[in-house]
Every structure is written in C-alpha cells, then in structure tokens.
Design a protein around this nucleic acid. Structure first.
Lengths: 125, 125
DNA sequence: CATGCAGTACGATTCAAGTCGTACTACATA
DNA sequence: TATGTAGTACGACTTGAATCGTACTGCATG
C-alpha cells in the first residue's frame, strides 16, 4: 500500500500462482470449438506462425518479432489475436513483449492429430 | 434406347469409364490445400453435412435433400459448392439430383486424422 | 529527459462469405 | 401438356475478415 500517493490504485498485487505472467484472455480447454480452430488455421500466414512454433520453438514462448514476418505490426497483432481467441496459442506479457506458444496439450486432448497436420503443412509453391 | 427420335442431340454420348456420371469440377488429390479444407470445415453447417455423410452415408452418395437441412435451396447450393471446391466432397449428377460423398481416401491420404476430428465433432449446445 | 522499441488501439478501406428471394432449367409423371 | 421436383444462376444485402496507416502506451537505456 503506497503511503498516500493520491492517484496510484495498486495495479497487480494479486498473488501469482507461478512466476509466469498471467495469460491473456483465452477460451478454456472445454470451450475450444473445432470450427473456430479450423477457421484460425485456414489462413496461410497463421499456419506459418503455428508451424514455426511447433517446429522451432524449443519449448519457449516467442515474441512476434521472432517470426520474421514481413507485415505491418498492426496486421500481426490481428493474426496473433485471432490465433489466441480461437484457442490455438496462448499469449503472455513479458514486460514489453507479448510472447506466444501453441497450446499443444489442450489441442492434442481435444483434437488429436490436428497439430500433426499443421506441422506437415507447407506453404503454396 | 430410342430408335431415331428426330430432336435428340445426344447429350452425353462420351464413353464413360464406369457406370457413374462424371464428377463435377474438383481439385485433384495433389492440389488439395490444408488451408482450403480447413476453411471449408470452419462452418457449422458444413461440418454438419460432412459429419452426417461420414456417419450415416453407408457408402452411398446423397442428394442435398437427404440431409434435411432447414435452409433455402440457394444457400445449400452455396455450401455444397464450397465443400466440393475445397476438395472435401465429390459431386455427381444423377439425373435431376446432384449427389455428394466425402473424398475419404483422398483426405486420409493427404490429411490423415482430419476426418476423425469431423466425425467426432458435435454442434454447439 | 529524449529516443527507441514492442506492441496495442482505432479507424478506413477493400474484399470475400454467408444469407436469401426470385427466376430459371431439366426431367419425371399424372 | 401441365404440374411438381431437384437443383442452379443471378443479384442484393449484410457481416466479417484482412489489410494497413497513424497515433498511442510503457518500458528501457542512452
């Protein structure tokens, strides 16, 4: 509690269950819908993102700069949000960066085999 | 076989490789694209159609009336066309009816496991 | 404190998709 | 030949997605 700094309303003093930042808003496992996941994965850029995470992530989260995608930042925000809202990726805020990883366990539990298809995907010639 | 009915301009005298009508235009197996298939399967009505074909078709083609979908005919045309153009279904013209079936072998060859996900899908509560 | 950096927020534009009504074709059959 | 049937074709409308520029926030570091 700050002594009496008139404006400051104690931003995030909730006890954290782990040392990781809280994930951004996302559907719970049981809320995952095949049609939404399919919709998220019907875009080549998003397939590229998810595949790269699956094949090269080495179990780390990655900021959207890591992907080396040649698109304006606001476009990337749009696509990463689409993936998160469909439940394909989880995003956490690490200071300045918002890092993503694929919800592998959740997706394998609900849609077994789906991620294998994404990993095997190759962009159009 | 009519003997010599004056007007008849012999509509389909091409030699048929089998006794089935020719399929309507569709992508070849090697042209199937995951993003297009995903896009076709990102719609609940189309998931309903494909799942019903997978679970209840008994290896027969089915006209679009068979599905009992409560939508205008022109909407159904739209969705069956979307499925066919993505390569999910094959359509053949049987006289008046245009019957559909899922391209099970092609899809299993290119995207193994995908149809299992569709078969396990259930519409939103 | 000024600059740079990672990313969001907002708004504009463009384009595709879903939805449907109406009109039409082609065939079957009463 | 008139009616019904299974479906397409076309056009209109509406909604959502993709695209991007610009402005902004919050933090780090010179």
């Amino acid at each position: 509690m700050p002594t009496t700094t008139a404006h400051a309303p104690a931003f995030k003093v909730l006890p954290e269950p782990s040392d990781l930042p809280e994930p951004l808003a996302e559907p719970a496992v049981e809320e995952l819908r095949l049609e939404h996941v399919m919709g998220a994965l019907s875009d080549p850029l998003r397939l590229t993102i998810v595949r790269k995470l699956l094949l090269e992530s080495e179990d780390f989260d990655h900021s959207c700069g890591w992907f080396g995608l040649d698109r304006p930042k606001s476009s990337l925000t749009h696509h990463f949000k689409a993936l998160r809202e469909a439940g394909v990726t989880r995003q956490r805020q690490y200071g300045l960066e918002r890092r993503s990883h694929v919800r592998v366990d959740d997706l394998n539990a609900r849609f077994p085999g789906l991620l294998d298809l994404v990993a095997a995907w190759t962009p159009q010639a």
